[in-house]
Design a protein around this nucleic acid. Structure first.
Lengths: 215, 215
DNA sequence: GTCTATAAGTAGATAGAC
DNA sequence: GTCTATCTACTTATAGAC
């Protein structure tokens, strides 16, 4: 309505989205420090001052890229899990989460890539605003591992937090090395799934507790 | 000898080392973009211009921190492997490398941490100079995995490069989350070793030809 | 060797026209 | 809404004294 400050509303402006996408692309490729506001503007086909019509500052713009990326990552993985039958074994849920996480990071969203590659280097005030959403995603993975543990699909000697962070690290680090030109996503996904399944699970196909008996 | 330019020689000057260590500490904690030359100088108890007596520029200083970190990481892991009996099984070598890598990253050297946390965000010209040393370390890990494969200790269905990078990613990402106050290094090391051993290796303790049937 | 003072460059941000 | 022109702040880097 009010024309003067769409700075928060009007999330559907085409120019605004172009600026956001350009920022996500440059952030994911060059990193926080090397991402100039003028580079973003150039890439979005506007002059630098136009950015300030939509965003209060460079920091605000980058903070929004991160917020969008975090949300997309979580929502994509949640959707993939929600699409599974209710009876799906916990370890199969984990495989699905591995696939979904890698797919969104490496193929679907430069916003997600931007988060993973830059979160650790962001100034404290931006990171503080992303904390809650990030904790939500952590919680999702903690739930997945706990379910596997309680179902007797996971070796109980593992430190649950360390295992979770090591797995997420293996996935997140792909953004540092994976190159679409150099290999198929499928190969990475399958190797990651195999690594995580065997890394967390029991040597054989059987288990500790009472439930599920495949043999 | 010549007093005018120790910029390369005199690697043993106490002040020079203080500056280098301060740079490593700040780089590992705050990242490349947030590491100001003046912060480094303050932390090293000198004024900013004094840095230029030892280093040609901020970039040169940071590049040297990275070079030192890369070298220490590789040398520490190589030493740990060299100390093993010649008959050590390949998978046990991998466990040793996992332990050594985590130890130097998380406990021994802020130079190593600085490399891992910043390599991906460095300007191209610095990264180019670190390429050879980095490739050397990659080669070390490739050798470890190939040895395990040839010894029949590793599942042959895994994509070797993907598996290697996923494992190194799990290890490297610890620099993003591990906090000495929040848990023991031993727990992380043991969980990582277990995860890698089972993640790469065969379900049971045997190997090779016709596959296992537990049922 | 290290300092004070300052130059030079760069990037973020604003003013005001259109 | 987007522009040109400009301001301001910050950071690296140098000059030259001690």
């Amino acid at each position: 309505m009010a024309k003067g400050r769409p700075k928060r509303a009007d999330t559907t402006s085409a120019t605004r989205n172009r600026i956001l996408s350009a920022a996500a692309q440059i952030l994911s490729a060059k990193g926080y420090s090397e991402t100039r506001l003028s580079d973003i503007a150039d890439s979005a086909q506007v002059r630098a001052p136009a950015v300030y019509y939509y965003f209060a500052s460079r920091e605000e713009l980058i903070a929004e890229v991160m917020a969008v990326g975090q949300r997309r990552l979580r929502e994509h993985v949640e959707s993939a899990l929600a699409a599974l039958p209710a009876s799906t074994a916990p370890m199969d849920c984990i495989s699905t989460a591995v696939q979904a996480h890698l797919q969104v990071e490496l193929q679907l969203s430069e916003f997600a890539t931007a988060v993973t590659r830059n979160l650790g280097q962001l100034p404290d005030d931006i990171r503080a605003r992303l904390r809650d959403e990030g904790a939500e995603y952590i919680r999702l993975w903690r739930g997945l591992l706990e379910a596997a543990l309680h179902a007797g699909e996971m070796r109980p000697d593992l430190d649950l937090r360390a295992a979770r962070m090591l797995v997420m690290g293996a996935l997140n680090w792909t953004t540092e090395w994976w190159d679409p030109c150099q290999g198929s996503l499928t190969a990475v996904v399958e190797t990651a799934q195999s690594l995580v399944r065997h890394g967390l699970g029991f040597p054989a196909a059987h288990h500790g507790a009472t439930d599920l008996n495949m043999c």
